[in-house]
Amino acid sequence: MLELFLLLAAALFSVGLYGALSQQSIVMIMMGIELMIAGVITAAAALWHFLAPAAADGQVIVVAAVVAMAVEMAMGFAVTTAVFRSRDIDTADAAEDLKG
C-alpha cells in the first residue's frame, strides 16, 4: 500500500516539476510548485502512517508543507503583482534585464 501512495506522490511531484519547468506564466509556475508540495504531503502522510505512526514527525511535515504552501502562495502572488505593476508582464521569461 505504501508503494501505491508513494507512486501517487511521485506522480504528483513529477507533474508539478514538469509544470514548473515548462510553464511560462509566473502563476502557472507557482501552480507547478504547489503540485510538488501536494506530492510531498502525500508522501509524508503515507510514510508516517505506514512506517512511523507512533511519532508525530510525519504529521508535522504535513503541517509544515501546508504552511509552506500558504506562505509561498502569498509571496508568489505578491511578487507577480509587483512585477506586473512595475514591468507590465506576466511571464517569467519576459524579465530578462539582469543577465551575464
Binding site: 511578487v79 509587483a82 512585477v83 505593476r85 512595475s86 524579465a95 534585464d97 539582469l98
Partner: peptide, 10 residues
C-alpha cells in the same frame, strides 16, 4: 519596487 528590483525578487 523598481523594474530591476522586482525582476530580482521574481
Amino acid at each position: 519596487k523598481d523594474a530591476r528590483g522586482v525582476e530580482a525578487a521574481l
